[in-house]
């Protein structure tokens, strides 16, 4: 598999997971939240400062359809993380003058 084709396949896998498979994710609290509920710690949780942001809680503000709202938020998140982490890696990387 060429490097380019591999990278495209990897990106498509991430987009499908965030955009489609995420719809089927379990809605129950995760391990830490379950422990917090069981031990009466959950009430200590403060309201999140970015609760009102357009992508808060993996939904897209203004998109009423629940599945679509989650899919758009997930795919946007994949794109944002790809750009930020990929950009950081590009800045940090060793430069090899010989390579294209």
């Amino acid at each position: 598999m060429t490097t380019r084709r591999f990278f495209v396949a990897f990106a498509i896998a991430a987009i499908l997971l965030a955009g489609v498979v995420s719809y089927f994710a379990a809605g129950s609290p995760d391990g830490l939240n379950r422990v917090a509920e069981d031990h009466g710690l959950a009430s200590a949780e403060k309201e999140h400062p970015t609760d009102g942001s357009p992508l808060a809680d993996y939904g897209t503000k203004g998109v009423d359809n629940g599945a679509l709202s989650g899919a758009v938020a997930g795919v946007l998140g994949v794109g944002i993380v790809l750009v930020v982490a990929g950009g950081l890696a590009f800045v940090v990387r060793r430069r090899r003058p010989s390579s294209a």
């Binding site: 991430a14 965030a18 993380v81 790809l82 990929g86």
Partner: peptide
């Protein structure tokens, strides 16, 4: 590029 893709994959 692999680093960016791995981060995006982990997010997903």
């Amino acid at each position: 590029p692999m680093a960016g893709l791995v981060a995006a994959f982990v997010f997903a």
